[in-house]
Nucleic acid binder design. Structure first.
Lengths: 193, 193
DNA sequence: GAATAGATGTACCACATGGTACATGAGCGC
DNA sequence: GCGCTCATGTACCATGTGGTACATCTATTC
């Protein structure tokens, strides 16, 4: 039960290394051969443990969902933090060099989503929910949350392509600097500035 | 000179049908076999006329660039049109069912761009320039143009995945409804670069 | 009519893909 | 020891890919 005969055969651990490989390659369209090589196991065994490539993808996606859920808990920021600060921090975090792989992978899943994949759509919806839950704690009203979210995603897109985080950072900063009074008719008490 | 022996052999016309096929499939990663079938010619002849798949892609991308350049001329709107109206119209145009193929294709090229393809990056830069040129005529200042652009692209992303144009429309409308006074400190009129 | 040059079809190739068949172990309980 | 189950490697396969070899056909030019 506790320890398998050899070292590898724990599927969960294997899955984590698969996810790591997907992140390193920036896409979930990684061939089984390359995936196996990156994980340090034979393609033969990957199929043996997971049954099919689809199952590997499913597992990795779920694992990624868990990880992101943990990372973007609302508790990640102190209550009543200024929205500008929250977004600034999120942007810095997102555009950190070490995040590039995850970013690429998430965008790759978005691509699958807009190409029709039901699972990828669910992943996208989950991420959306996550960020809405996070931002709702710092922004007044659902509408503005969705707007910021769209701005953020557009900024990420531009960042990924150009490699330059500045335009995105500027836009986000501007968004919260521009006279943002009287923004939400449904403005609940949480409107600093 | 004028008319070839048979009907097909005009490479330019062929290229247009290739682009149409790419648009119909929503991706530029269309196999030569499928492409040929869609165009109504044999794979053999595609290679014959264009030399390689890469050349076909290059030609189609250039053709697409031309088309989009024509579509998003600044003259597309009367001067001094309200920004809100401009964006509203652009959004309606973008989310029209008939535009979905082009949208998907452009996003597919964006994907190539963020995966490193130099040509796709150039395509993205060109589109960016195009939209900046357009929007600069109606928005005060480069910074706000870039912000709107990012918001727009994020909205497109969400629309493509969910199929729902409403959130994007709302965000754009909100952006221009919220007190948008005193926006650009550097509101110079017409600054190329 | 003969030579030439392009158009076209058929068959094929090398390679990558996800996945399988089969054989060989290697450790376990008895 | 003897089976039993699982782990593992090697070779393989069917399919799809971009692209080519070669042979044929057709129209134009001389």
């Amino acid at each position: 039960m506790s320890a398998q005969r050899k070292a590898q055969p724990d599927p969960q651990q294997l899955l984590e290394r698969c996810l790591a490989a997907f992140i390193a390659s920036g896409t979930i369209d990684l061939s089984l051969d390359r995936l196996a090589q990156s994980v340090g196991i034979s393609k033969r065994m990957l199929i043996h443990y997971f049954g099919s490539r689809e199952n590997i993808e499913e597992g990795a996606m779920t694992l990624l969902e868990d990880r992101l859920r943990a990372q973007f808990q609302p508790r990640a920021f102190a209550p009543h933090t200024a929205p500008k600060t929250v977004l600034e921090t999120l942007w810095k975090q997102t555009t950190a060099p070490g995040s590039r792989g995850i970013l690429l992978l998430v965008m790759d899943l978005s691509r699958r989503a807009w190409n029709g994949s039901a699972r990828a759509k669910a992943f996208y919806a989950e991420q959306q929910r996550l960020w809405v839950d996070l931002l709702e704690n710092f922004l007044p009203g659902r509408a503005i949350v969705e707007e910021v979210l769209q701005l953020f995603q557009g900024a990420v897109l531009a960042y990924l392509i150009t490699g330059d985080p500045e335009p995105g950072r500027r836009s986000l900063a501007r968004f919260f600097s521009a006279k943002r009074a009287r923004t939400a008719r449904t403005a609940r008490p949480l409107d600093p500035r």
